[in-house]
Simulated scan of single mutants.
Amino acid sequence: MRYKGAVEFRNVVKKFGQFTAIPDLSLSIEPGELVTLLGPSGCGKTTTLRMLAGLEGPTGGQILIGGQEVTRLPADRRDVSMVFQSYALFPHMTVAQNVAYGLESGGMKPAEARERAAEGLVLVGLEGLGARLPAELSGGQQQRVAVARALVLEPQVLLLDEPLSNLDARLRRRVRTEIRELQQRLGFTAVYVTHDQEEALAVSDRIVVMKNGVVAQVGSPRELYEAPASEFIADFIGEANVVGGEVLSVEGGIARVDLGGAILALPARGLREGPARLAMRSNAARVRTAGAGVPGRVASSAYLGDHVEYEIDGPLGRVFVVDDESDTPLPVGTEVVLDLRPRGLALIPEGV
């Protein structure tokens, strides 16, 4: 199977009448990468995917797949396959017939299409279920049928549009793991659209975070989570607290930072001495009743089984903290200290 095409957007613009949905998009995706387009509703991620699929035409710029320009090619000539949010399975056809449908529509002989469909079902772990109707499968199994139907076409790029949104939370976790394992095993290029930050972190080689049609940051899941380029990224990826601090000095790329009275050493990220903003992850502090740290007072607490969630008032403002070492919530009003851990803290670069 050969699905390992590169993707490139060159200064792509998309307008709907007077509204500019995508002002100027340039983005490259390497062969064999799974790249997720992530962002809130209306950010342009689905429009970008639809332009790549040929379902929307760009107003300007170029789109290339496998080094060939496809900007004006119709969808059926782009060598891509799409997995839709709704699965789009034919209810009157068996699973095997659904998987073989695109092959036969493209002119493949029925016997060869059936053989290829059977191979596709093996790939997604559904061997032996080809004779069933879609209604006889679970939601996760139906999603795997949709993936198999796309893969048997051997596209250069597989497109996935919110593929897990119709599944419950537990099934989403399982199916996203299956999709990621399949992608890594076969090495196909995939462009994945979701609004779910956890899903994006779990499946991606790289994440493209979009805001108002513009790329806000591109990076690996770890880069985006641990080194957000802006307050928007910090809040959107992992819902960080954005707090104020003071850079006391910088030496060798390391900043000495005063954060609510606690002194920390953090990567300077281009900052100099003076006021600064930091992303503070909810798991960056442990709530203690004594010891060194940032003073505060419990504003709210909630027991959630394997952790306790707190809102703490103090010199950093009101911050949200998840403490997985506590098993009994502290009462509202309790005086506490926040024992900070540098790994969950990052300075936010200036001007973003």
Rank of each mutant, 00 (worst) to 15 (best):
N241H: 07
F232R: 04
A279N: 06
R272E: 14
E251A: 15
A285K: 00
D235C: 08
L278F: 01
E273L: 10
S249T: 15
V242I: 13
R286I: 13
N241S: 06
E273R: 15
S282L: 03
R256P: 08
G270R: 12
F236Q: 03
A279H: 04
G274K: 12
E273P: 09
A265I: 05
N241D: 05
I254W: 10
V257M: 11
A262H: 02
G238H: 07
A240I: 06
L248V: 14
P267R: 07
L278K: 01
A234R: 05
V247H: 01
G253F: 13
S230H: 01
I233P: 02
A285P: 00
G260R: 01
R288L: 14
V257I: 06
R277I: 02
L266N: 09
A265Y: 03
M280V: 03
V243W: 00
Y225E: 03
E231M: 05
G270M: 13
A268H: 04
Y225W: 06
D258M: 11
V257W: 01
E239P: 01
A255E: 08
V242M: 02
A262E: 06
E226N: 10
R286H: 11
A276H: 05
G253S: 11
R286T: 14
V247I: 13
F232M: 07
A240D: 05
S230Y: 00
P267A: 11
P275V: 12
V242A: 01
E246L: 11
L266S: 11
V247E: 02
Y225M: 04
A268R: 03
P228V: 05
N283T: 15
S282K: 07
V287S: 00
I254D: 06
A255T: 08
P228N: 12
G238E: 10
A276L: 13
E246M: 12
F232N: 04
F232W: 02
I237L: 04
P228K: 04
S249A: 15
A255Y: 06
L248K: 15
G253I: 13
G252E: 07
D258E: 14
G252S: 09
V250Y: 09
R281C: 04
L271V: 15
A255M: 12
F232I: 09
A276F: 10
A234Q: 09
A284N: 01
S230C: 04
M280D: 00
I254M: 11
A240L: 08
E251S: 15
A285W: 00
G274R: 14
I233F: 03
A240E: 06
L248N: 12
D235T: 11
V287G: 00
N283S: 14
F232H: 05
R277G: 00
E239A: 13
V257S: 10
E251H: 15
L248C: 13
A227S: 03
F236D: 02
G274E: 12
L264W: 10
A279I: 07
I237C: 02
R256W: 11
A240N: 07
A268F: 04
A262C: 09
G270Q: 12
S230N: 03
A234F: 10
M280Y: 01
A255F: 08
A265V: 08
A276P: 06
V287P: 00
E226I: 11
I263M: 12
G260D: 07
I233K: 01
A284C: 02
N241V: 10
A240T: 07
V257D: 03
L271C: 14
V250Q: 06
E273K: 15
L278M: 05
N283I: 15
I263N: 12
P267S: 10
E239I: 04
D235V: 10
P228R: 06
F236N: 03
